[in-house]
Design a protein around this nucleic acid. Structure first.
Lengths: 203, 203
DNA sequence: GTCTATACCGAGATAGAC
DNA sequence: GTCTATCTCGGTATAGAC
């Protein structure tokens, strides 16, 4: 194979991008196998570096996980670009955010995979991720949905129901794409999931 | 604590239920941590037996996993009680099956947890579970949904979309209940998820 | 068939040369 | 900062007494 799978023995490289490359590799491994089953050796190998560099740059596997999740949510929020929108037309604003969220979920299935695997048991990582990221995300969705409903638009659904639909139909299908493909024979598509959501939400 | 956490040292028990008890414990551990991260020690301890008995009764961790999944799907299919229904009224039949599925998913969140954690990567366990169980389940749902649509009832959705909704809104919320509770402040309820699904599906 | 003891392996973390 | 070598721990599986 032409691709380098691991740093050559005896060779010595230097790069300011080590941490960044380790983060990207960590996201893939953590999302595919979960925190406990992912190995720092596999992460380092995927990034083309050595395992002890994880401890050097991040201190521990747990801190690497937190840094990777921070990195991923930062990417999502940059794409959503909230906070600055004055929301003149709440329906158009929510439709736009929804479309960006579905596209992001398809491009970065790691986010929902990590959420899903790390949130079946109520442990410290769940508490951390909700307090730091997911809670704020839900608050934004709830606010957007209530604005839509107050304007007279949207289906007769609570914000919790709307949230469940966004996650269950806008993110989960891409995170579990291998399953859906094998079971139904078709892979989920961004446009179809988005239009399904818009129809069901009445946007 | 009154509960025995592990067999007492030096004591010696015998039971025809060893395998069954190990299966139940395995379902909990596998669903909470995934196949790789679950440990056979923890499974045996949860059941009150010793770790080598897993290899004695099942041969390997992998075979224990398959036996546990078989056991779980058998429970589901017994509850659904398909195959014998002549489906005179397709809407009533699907409504009834849907209600039973949602109730089962709440009572046994292990099923969707295992599906979710084992189906993000397209490995041998995904192929096994789809060919042996999930594929048949989808075929039943598709058949039921197409009968509903042919009778003129139901929302204008494909059977794949209906399937995604059943999983995403009828099973996932209970599998990830800790997350939903922390994020939204409310725990998913059987009646609410069922009525939400019936509304959206037009049943 | 149940149990103790242990072989063997891969994990995360660390020491220390460079 | 990067790398090799290694420590320690916990994992599955197995051997063999009972």
């Amino acid at each position: 194979m032409a691709q380098v799978e691991i740093a050559d023995k005896g060779s010595r490289r230097t790069s300011p991008a080590v941490a960044s490359e380790l983060l990207d590799a960590a996201l893939v491994e953590f999302s595919l196998h979960g925190f406990a089953a992912a190995s720092t050796r596999a992460i380092a190998q995927r990034a083309g570096w050595h395992q002890p560099q994880i401890n050097y740059h991040f201190g521990s596997k747990e801190e690497l996980w937190r840094a990777a999740v921070d990195h991923l949510f930062a990417e999502l929020e940059a794409e959503l670009g909230w906070l600055d929108e004055p929301a003149e037309d709440p329906v158009a604003a929510l439709r736009a955010s929804l479309g960006r969220f579905v596209a992001f979920s398809a491009r970065r299935p790691e986010l929902h995979r990590i959420m899903s695997v790390e949130t079946t048991v109520d442990g410290p990582r769940l508490a951390w991720i909700v307090e730091r990221h997911a809670g704020r995300l839900f608050a934004e969705v709830r606010q957007g949905w209530e604005a839509v409903r107050a304007s007279g638009a949207g289906s007769a659904l609570s914000s919790v129901e709307a949230w469940q639909m966004v996650i269950g139909l806008g993110a989960r299908p891409f995170a579990n794409a291998p399953e859906i493909l094998r079971v139904t024979g078709v892979a989920p598509q961004v446009d179809e999931q988005r239009s399904l959501l818009e129809r069901l939400l009445g946007l």
